[in-house]
Design a protein around this nucleic acid. Structure first.
Lengths: 212, 212
DNA sequence: GTCTATACACGGATAGAC
DNA sequence: GTCTATCCGTGTATAGAC
C-alpha cells in the first residue's frame, strides 16, 4: 500500500502530511486540556493514537510543530456566526451586536484562547519563531478589517478613521478583555466592558444618508 | 541570627526570608533575560549566587516561588512618574498625557511585561495558583482607579460612568495594546492606538465648572 | 515507511554530610 | 542552618529492527 493504489488512502495509508494535521490537532487538544507545558511529544502522539516515534518523521523538531500550530491558528471566525445587523437599528446597538458576536467566539473556547496566549509567549522568546505571532496578528487584523467593512455596509454607516486602525484597537480591546476574563471568568463583567466599548466605538462612525 | 547575635546581620548571616527576596529577584531577572522556561531552580540559584540546595529550604516547592513572584508583582506604578496635568489644557490632551505615562512604564520594560503574561498563563493552568492572577488584577484595578480619581481632580473633570469600570476598560486596552506590541515592537503604532483610545475616553468625561 | 527501544540531558526534589 | 551529591521522572531526539 506504500505506493500501490493511486488515489484516496483506503484506510491505513493515511500517512504523508495527513499525519501532521492529525498531530497538530492532537497537540491543540492536549494543550487545551492540560496546558501547554503538558504537551510533550509523547503526550501528543498518545493523543493522536500514534507511537511516539511517529513524531520525528512528521516534524524535524518540536519547534516545527509550534510553527505549524501558530500558522494554522484558529483566529476568530465570524463567517458562520455573522449576526443580524439592521440598518434601522441604532448604531450603538448594532455595534454591540457585532462585538457580542466576536465575544461569543472567544467565550465559547476559553482554553483555546489561553493556548493562544501561551503559544504567543513561547514564540516571542524564541528568535526562530519570533515572526510567527506577528504574522498571526496581521492575519487577524486583516480579517477583522474585512468584518468591519462588511459591518459598515450592512449597518449603513461609515467610519471617521481608517478601518485598519479601528480594527487594531478593537482586537486589542478584545484581547485585553479576554485576558482579564481568563482570570475572573465573569461573563457578565466581560460583556459589560465590551458594551462600554461599543458606546465609544459608535463615536467613530457616521450614519450614512440611507439610500436603501 | 538564629539565636546568637541580636540585631543586624553582619555579612554572611543573611538568611531567613531575606534569601527568599533574593531568590525572587533573581528569578525575575532570569525570566526576563532568558524566558520563563529557562528559569529552572538551578538557574535561579546560580543567578542569586547561591548553591542549588538553598532553594528548597527557602521554598517548599517551585510553585511557592511562583506564588511569591505573583504576589510581589510589579504592577504599573505612576507614583514616581506622574505626568503634568493642566486643568486648562483640553481634556483630550490631558488624557493623552496620562495614557502616555502609563504606556511609558510598559514600554520601558518589555520583558517584564512578557513575564507577567507568562506567569499569568502558568498560574491559570494550575488550580493551586489559579486565584493569584485574579488578585493581582484586582490590585492593579484599584491602583488604576486611584490614578483616575487623582487625574479627574487635577484635570478638573468628572466621569460619566463608574470609575472602576473605566479603570477596567483602560487596563484591558493597555494590556491588549501591550500584547500586540510585544509582537511587532512598533512603538509608534502602539502609541497611535492609545491616542485613538484617548479620544474615545474623553467622551466619558465631563468638564467641571472650574471653581479653582 | 512504520514503529520499538534507547540514548542523553535536564529539571525538581531530597538525603545526608558539614 | 548550609551545602553536596544523588534519586527519579520526563523531555527531545535518534538508531535500528520490522
Amino acid at each position: 500500500m506504500t505506493e500501490s493504489t493511486g488515489g484516496k488512502a483506503t484506510k491505513k495509508q493515511v500517512s504523508a502530511d495527513e499525519r501532521r494535521r492529525l498531530l497538530v490537532g492532537a497537540a491543540l487538544r492536549v494543550m487545551k486540556r492540560d496546558g501547554i507545558t503538558a504537551a510533550s511529544t509523547r503526550a501528543i502522539c498518545a493523543e493522536a493514537g500514534m507511537p511516539h516515534g511517529a513524531f520525528h518523521y512528521c516534524f524535524r523538531s518540536k519547534k516545527e510543530l509550534y510553527a505549524a500550530l501558530l500558522a494554522s491558528d484558529i483566529e476568530i471566525d465570524l463567517e458562520a456566526a455573522w449576526p443580524d445587523i439592521h440598518a434601522k437599528a441604532s448604531t450603538r446597538d448594532n455595534i454591540r451586536t457585532l462585538l457580542h458576536a466576536f465575544w461569543s467566539q472567544i467565550e465559547s473556547d476559553p482554553e483555546g484562547q489561553l493556548v493562544l496566549f501561551d503559544l504567543g509567549s513561547l514564540a516571542l522568546h524564541d528568535p526562530e519563531l519570533h515572526d510567527l505571532p506577528q504574522w498571526e496578528q496581521q492575519a487577524a487584523l486583516e480579517k477583522a478589517t474585512g468584518y468591519l467593512q462588511r459591518f459598515a455596509q450592512e449597518a449603513g454607516l461609515e467610519y471617521v478613521q481608517e478601518e485598519e486602525q479601528l480594527a487594531e484597537l478593537l482586537l486589542a480591546t478584545l484581547n485585553g478583555v479576554a485576558w482579564s476574563w481568563l482570570s475572573h471568568r465573569d461573563n457578565e463583567r466581560a460583556r459589560a466592558a465590551l458594551d462600554q466599548f461599543s458606546g465609544l466605538f459608535a463615536t467613530l462612525t457616521r450614519k450614512l444618508a440611507d439610500a436603501v
